[in-house]
Amino acid sequence: MLLVLDVLDKQLTDRHGVRMGKADGLVMLQEGDAPPRVVCIEVGSLTLARRLGRHVGRWAARLARRWGGDRTQSYRIPWTLVRGITLEIAVDVDAEETRVNVVEDWLRIHVVAHIPGGRL
């Protein structure tokens, strides 16, 4: 398996097969002399911004601190919950119970709900 080709930027699907964002980043850990291993997949725009360049990353982080506080931190999915990698990465979590949709939820409540026809 090639991490960059097969994992990074791939579509994530949760245990119900629902799309839950892309693998925006990977967290790797190196202990002692052992080769580094992947410990989790990160989902979140801050991770994504960091990959576009140091300046973009810093600017996004500053923006996030001012507007969103802790909620905007990237969500980490432990590698042990990865169930299969095809074109998509199937992970054993429930997207509804995670923070991957915090921005979506915030916009629904604070913006979309105020537009006629925007309520469920």
Binding site: V103, E104, L107, V111, V112, A113, G117, L120
Partner: peptide, 10 residues
Amino acid sequence: PPAVDARFSL
């Protein structure tokens, strides 16, 4: 409905 895919609809 726009409420479900808020970012897309906005």
